[in-house]
Every structure is written in structure tokens, then in C-alpha cells.
Design a protein around this nucleic acid. Structure first.
Lengths: 130, 130
DNA sequence: TTACGAGTTGAAGAACTCTGCAATTTGCTA
DNA sequence: TAGCAAATTGCAGAGTTCTTCAACTCGTAA
């Protein structure tokens, strides 16, 4: 391995390691949204949201396009949904027996199985197993 | 959502956000290993490795058991492999066109497809797609 | 052109994380 | 029991990341 690849991976995960950034990604799973809508959903100051959006943008995980008076964000890799599902799945295992968040995770996964599925195939599998 | 679930997720990703921790998880994908072996593979001081192992332990991602004079670590959720594969997949998309790490990512995924597969089903799918 | 709304950027301070060293614990083996 | 090797823990300093506030840019509409 000539370039430290695990470093790129670590950076990528660190990029996801913030509550606001997670919320943004989850909201964008259902399609592109203008900043205004994100702001309405995420209880946070506009400038803070902008900071976090900048982090996601610099990492190349989301893209921003200006559209008549507002900026619209979208996932640049649609499989982020798969990653979040994987994470949910692992959290379920890791927390199994720890109670707490487990019920919520299950509820969330269930809600998604009902939702119209426009996602990668591996995600369906993971959710199915849940 | 009564407990901030996105916060649990963010913490989980933050836990993965360190090169040494990623290396540990990748090494453990092939089965449990004693600290000694991890230390031999990962160029780092013993105490630093211990610190990072403690982080993974506290997050419940790995487990440690003492076995005749050494401590053996194992993944507590075997699907961590799936998560890392998901991450690789996304990195591939995100970096597509940025060159750089892309060739390495592909090489790594290829190596794994050849390897004996004792992993969750979703992982095989993801690697297949790569 | 001016003013406005929508987002972004910059900077300072607080809060966290990382590293490496020294000290400590634990269980084996003599 | 004494000594050793294997890991872990505590701690201080260096480095990052977060938050908040104020200043700024950009496009649109008057």
C-alpha cells in the first residue's frame, strides 16, 4: 500500500462523525433539498449548518447547486444510504442487550422498509435481515 | 425520536475515524488476534495501540479476552466487514475522477473477492458490484 | 442602482482528541 | 515468592474540531 488508504477511510468516517452531518445525509437520502428546508428540519443556526455543509462538500459527499435564489444540496454518492443502513445494522448488533437505543433503531429500520425503495440492492438485504 | 439517535450514529462513526482503529478492524476481519500480532502489523507504540483499542472496546465494537499470557481481540459485530465494504464502495464513487486512491481501492476490493468468504451476505453483494 | 434575503466565510475561545512517556497492573514461569 | 513480559492507565502538551458572532458575497426584485 503506497498511500495510506486506511487514512482516507478514517477521514471519511470522521467526516460522518457529527450529529448535524448525519441528519443532513439522512434528509438528503430522500432527494435533493435547499438549505432552507434543511434549516427548517435541523434545529441549528444558519451559519453552523453552513459550516457542516462545507465539511460534507469538501469531502465530496454532497454537492451544492444554486437554483434561483437558493442553494440545493444533494448526495453525490447515492449509496450513502447503504452506508447508513450498514451502520444501523451494526449498531443494532453492538447495542443488542444494551437495550436503550435498540428499540428506536428497529423502529427506524421498519419505517424505511415500508418506504418506496430507491436504493442499492445490498441495502434491501441488510434491512430485510433486520 | 426521544433519544437523539443521529447522535449515537455520529459517535459510532467518530469511533471509526482514526487510521489505527481502521487498521485494527481490518486486521480483525480475518479473525481474532492477540495484541502482540496487531502491534507487529501496525507501526505504533504499544501504549498508543492500547489507547485506541480502549476506544473500540468502550464503543463495544471489539471484545478482549485474556488467553494464557496475552489478550486476544475480536470484532463483536462481525458485520463491521460489511460497513468497511460499504465505505470502500462510497469512497470509490466519491473519488471517481479524482484518480489518486481509486486504483488502490479497486485493488483492495479485488483481493477480497478472491479471499475465502466467511462474511455476511450483503458484503458479497457489495463486493460483487464493485 | 439600491436594498434585501439567503448562504457563506472568518476568527476567537472553549472543548475535545491524540501522542508519547512513565508508572502500574496482571498473570505466567522459574 | 520473585521476576518478567504483555498490556493498560494516567497525564501533560500539542493539535483539532466545534460553536458563536460578526462581516461578507451573491443573486433577485424593486
Amino acid at each position: 500500500m503506497t498511500v495510506p488508504l486506511y487514512q482516507a477511510k478514517a477521514e471519511f468516517f470522521r467526516t460522518l462523525g457529527h450529529p448535524v452531518r448525519i441528519q443532513v445525509l439522512e434528509l438528503l437520502q430522500n432527494g435533493p433539498l435547499p438549505v432552507r428546508d434543511l434549516l427548517a428540519e435541523i434545529d441549528i443556526e444558519a451559519s453552523s449548518l453552513s459550516q457542516q455543509l462545507a465539511v460534507l462538500r469538501k469531502a465530496g459527499i454532497v454537492t451544492a447547486t444554486r437554483e434561483s435564489g437558493s442553494v440545493v444540496y444533494a448526495l453525490s454518492a447515492p449509496d450513502v444510504a447503504g452506508l447508513l443502513a450498514s451502520a444501523r445494522w451494526i449498531l443494532t448488533e453492538v447495542l443488542a442487550g444494551q437495550g436503550e437505543l435498540l428499540a428506536e433503531l428497529r423502529a427506524e429500520a421498519g419505517r424505511e422498509s415500508d418506504a418506496p425503495a430507491r436504493r442499492g440492492p445490498q441495502v434491501r438485504q441488510e434491512l430485510g435481515a433486520l
